[in-house]
Design a protein around this nucleic acid. Structure first.
Lengths: 243, 243
DNA sequence: CGAATGTTTGATCCTTGTCAACTGCTGTGG
DNA sequence: CCACAGCAGTTGACAAGGATCAAACATTCG
């Protein structure tokens, strides 16, 4: 199998410093292969059973936990370039898995090789730590949202997040980004009921602020959206390490 | 200044493999000094300004974010042994800081030295990544709680978490653990109002399940508490890396 | 066409937030 | 020594945001 990984997002993830040839080679050795899955297919990440790490090459999905009573919390949406599976290593007590919302192509890595990877390429390991800290930062933001924001603010916040994440990957001037999920997914991500989420979406639409239809998110009034989300209008995603 | 760090929790944090002498020496070089702060003192972590990392040696505190409208979300409580500051590096857009609830003693590290540390001690870097993933796991749990659990369940969940974290540090058979925070802090951590938190605490007390008074958390009925929190009764904290 | 899935809308209920008042404790200054 | 301010905790009354229930509607697929 050809395991060269030129388009592999783990590179993007680590692109804080230019990559040397040795690093690329090491990355390829680390890589196990590619995986393509259909919408609705679960990515097995439960407990320590799974020995794999993934990066998303294309498509979108959700990462979620499920409570014994059946309630589901979406931890985050998975976009191209995202790294999945680090956390799975430390999970036991709770259901934790990921699921494809569209066709997805994943880059598969062998977790057991990660340790060697660290030894041989400390700089990349450093980047990984940084990526994990970044993930944690995002989760912290989500926590703030679920803890302190109203329904309208939550949806606005989610839209800002999605837009910031995806817009840079779109051709300049694009008015919409792909967000191919169900309202139920967003509801589970924001800790709202499906019905209330739906009504809130309708409100945002009638306010002419943002519309999410047919798997596409269109934002008409960025400033008002940011205000609703209590975010500065020039918000951007942190992408480069600061230390 | 004597910077030997025999009691320093960053060692505990990395205790997955025995430490070699070289590691200890490197750690000490990495260490900047110790810091003791009074209750109510904020630890400056805002934005990229802070060039420091800390581990908590003794005392407790909270790490929180503040919204423009003044609402506060407690991300987590800080216990002895915890590592703080990794996330701060990637934070800009939002207030983010930590504050001491009691007298605290902190171990201070220089962030700029972290990179070198990684290069020279890849295994330790690996541990750090693991620690970051672990943190993320905890935040994910918190997210589930804020998103899906009721007030009673949230408080129960928090008590279980605190107990699991602190009990191993207590003498065997201890019936209470120190939890020296205000009800407002717990409320802000759980996304509840102060009043409702108070009433929920009263309920838990009258149910003879758990009582938190005078900075001490006492658990009388572990099984019922776990049931309320929707957690298995044999829940434990993940402490060792699985890969 | 019918079944399945997802979206939309209205009616009702309830968990939780808000407002307000009171208690008890601690520290301070006259 | 007492008066008083300040702060955390407690309790009750009331309001509201969001959950739940139920039903209709749209779309896709076999």
């Amino acid at each position: 199998m050809n395991v060269s990984c030129h388009a592999c997002p783990i590179r993007k993830l680590s692109l804080f410093k230019p990559m040397r040839d040795g690093d690329v080679a090491a990355m390829d050795r680390f890589k196990t292969g590619e995986l393509r899955i259909d919408p609705g297919t679960p990515l097995l990440l439960e407990g320590s059973g799974s020995a794999q790490l993934f990066t998303c090459l294309s498509g979108q999905g959700v990462r979620h936990k499920t409570l014994p009573d059946g309630n589901r919390q979406v931890l985050n949406f998975i976009f191209p370039g995202d790294f999945i599976g680090l956390q799975a290593a430390v999970m036991d007590e709770m259901q934790h898995s990921a699921e494809a919302s569209t066709d997805m192509v994943l880059c598969v890595f062998d977790r057991s090789a990660l340790y060697d990877f660290f030894r041989q390429h400390p700089e990349r390991g450093f980047d990984l730590t940084w990526a994990a800290a970044l993930e944690e930062h995002f989760l912290g933001d989500a926590l703030v949202t679920l803890g302190q924001r109203t329904a309208l603010e939550r949806v606005a916040w989610a839209f800002v997040r999605v837009w910031l994440r995806l817009a840079p990957m779109m051709p300049d001037g694009a008015r919409a980004v792909p967000f191919p999920h169900r309202q139920q997914d967003l509801a589970d991500a924001l800790g709202l009921s499906l019905v209330h989420t739906n009504k809130t979406l309708a409100r945002l639409r009638s306010m002419q602020v943002a519309a999410w239809r047919d798997g596409e998110l269109t934002i008409s009034d960025w400033d008002r959206l940011c205000d609703l989300a209590q975010l500065p209008r020039d918000t951007s995603l942190p992408l480069r390490p600061l230390f």
